[in-house]
Amino acid sequence: MPLVHTPSGGTRTRRALTGWAFAGPATVLVGTLSLLPAGWSFMFSRTDWNGFGPWDDIGWDNYAWLARNPGVHEAAGHTLVFAAMFVPASVLLGMGMAVALDRRIRFIGFYRMCVIVPFVVSGTVTGLLSTILFDPGFGRVNALLGRAGLPAQQFLRSPDQAMATLCVIALWAEIGFTSMIYLAALQDVPRRLLEAAALDGAGRWRTFWYITVPELRAVTVFVVFWQTLTAVQLFDLIHTATGGGPSGATTTLAYLLYDTAFPRMHYGRAAALSYLIFAMTLLLALVVVIRMRRTGKDIL
């Protein structure tokens, strides 16, 4: 419960006025710029509007289109495949890197800084840069593979490899943030538990697995939630690295939504698609909340 600061001699009305003077402007702005459009989006999703002229109410037709269109199914599949690679890798690499960085040795501040720096680079720039680094002809990555005696790859130009390549690039950009969160949580693992385990003769790996990993569970729930949102909403990187290609191989739901609404102006369909993404987000939040209740820890 928040402790309450009572202004001297404030009546109920005066308190309400003061409170709303503080909280009102931001609350109204956030509400207007999100709840209002969210409701409006639902209205659009039941029309065939293309940006010009009047629109007709077509009931649930756009949702029916979502259900039958193979392009939507493919995009949903791509989104799931990306999340299935990106989220577990975020947890494993984030935790692993946090453990590696959790040691007071020389230059440790420098190492931590290096890892977090890509987080500042925009998705747009990361995507553009990756087209150079992963170029099949003159890219640095193929040059490195060549030096290791491995054959050159097509990466972003190959329908089979583009998604995995995007995932590697997204991990490069995001993993620093995840490891900083794990690094902070590692500081809160009680020393006496680790010492007790050592006294009982548990090795380093057993201590990590049976003490540290369970202690980090609440953070892991947060990381899974956060990185899944990132994966579902990823747009900038896809737009500049592949533009959804080659031949649609990296078109996720979020990218399909942009593609449906802006070059093609099918606002109704795009709005329905945005509700599909919203439903996926809500479902995910529900799962996370239930998991949190079960672990008995509250991240809020």
């Binding site: 956030v30 999100s34 979020a254 945005s274 919203f278």
Partner: peptide, 23 residues
């Protein structure tokens, strides 16, 4: 009011894109 603020954070930006553009 605070619950409302928390609720809006659940709304993905994709949902707001088209109506905000139209607005």
């Amino acid at each position: 009011a605070f619950v409302l603020v928390l609720l809006t954070s659940m709304i993905p930006p994709q949902l707001l894109l088209i109506p905000t553009y139209v607005m």
